[in-house]
Amino acid sequence: MRRLQTEMNRLFQAASSQADAGYPAMNVYASPDGVAVMAEIPGVAEDELDISVHRDTVTLKGERRTHVDGLKGYHRRERVAGAFLRTLSLPFSVDPDRVEAHYRNGVLHMSLHRPDADKPKRISVNAR
């Protein structure tokens, strides 16, 4: 019984740690000019997505619906449905006028550019 209880506790901890990772899953790639974000959101219609940018924060909001016509119950249900909200903090401000977003094959691609005034400047040193 103790071994069964230990195994059940381990399974519940693993499931809760995966849920804490956040949905949708995102990869963020940084460069000196900004970041590229890729978010996996299969099954979400393009018009169900709401992307907002404010200073150094990007928010992705939407809803994934289940479309099962004529069926009343599940044999197995592994795909999560419902509303989601994911906020991502960046190490710099984003230029909201230069944000680009493309959605194809269930993957959202966003390019978030850093304002020119916020980019580091190289200072040359003159020796006299």
Rank of each mutant, 00 (worst) to 15 (best):
K119N: 04
K119R: 15
P91F: 11
R3A: 08
E63I: 09
R122Y: 10
I51D: 00
E40S: 13
M8S: 01
D47Y: 14
V53K: 02
D50N: 10
Y74T: 05
D97I: 03
N105A: 15
R104N: 07
R76Y: 11
L71P: 00
M8Y: 04
E100T: 14
R55E: 07
R65V: 14
Y74P: 01
F12N: 01
L112C: 08
G43D: 03
A127L: 15
E78M: 05
H102L: 14
P115W: 09
P91L: 06
D118R: 12
H75D: 09
T6L: 11
V68P: 00
P96M: 07
G62M: 04
S124E: 12
R10W: 03
M110L: 15
R128M: 04
S31D: 07
A15S: 07
K119T: 13
P115S: 10
T87I: 14
H113L: 15
R76L: 04
V68G: 02
L60T: 03
G70A: 08
H109V: 10
H113K: 15
S16Y: 03
A36C: 00
P42S: 08
L49P: 02
L88A: 05
V80H: 05
M26Q: 11
T57W: 06
S31C: 07
G82M: 05
A14D: 08
V125H: 06
S111M: 15
V53G: 07
R128I: 10
V107L: 08
G106P: 05
G62E: 02
R128K: 11
R10G: 01
L108T: 12
F92S: 08
R77L: 11
G34V: 11
T87K: 14
A101E: 14
M1L: 06
A83W: 11
E63G: 02
T59N: 14
R128N: 05
T87H: 09
D95A: 11
V58F: 09
D118W: 09
N105Y: 13
E7T: 09
T6G: 00
E78Q: 03
Q18A: 01
A81F: 14
R122N: 04
L71D: 06
L88E: 07
R76D: 01
R114A: 03
A101H: 12
H113M: 13
A45W: 12
D95F: 13
M38H: 12
A81Q: 05
D56R: 11
A81P: 01
M1D: 02
A36V: 13
S124Y: 10
R10N: 02
L4P: 00
F92A: 12
R55W: 05
D116N: 13
L112H: 08
Y29I: 12
A101T: 13
N27A: 14
E40P: 00
S31E: 01
D97F: 13
R128L: 10
R65F: 11
L60F: 08
L90C: 02
R128G: 03
A127W: 12
A30M: 13
A127H: 10
K121M: 13
P96G: 04
N9I: 04
R76W: 03
S16N: 03
G70E: 03
Y23C: 04
P120N: 11
M8P: 00
L112N: 05
V107H: 01
T57H: 11
T66N: 06
T57I: 15
R76A: 08
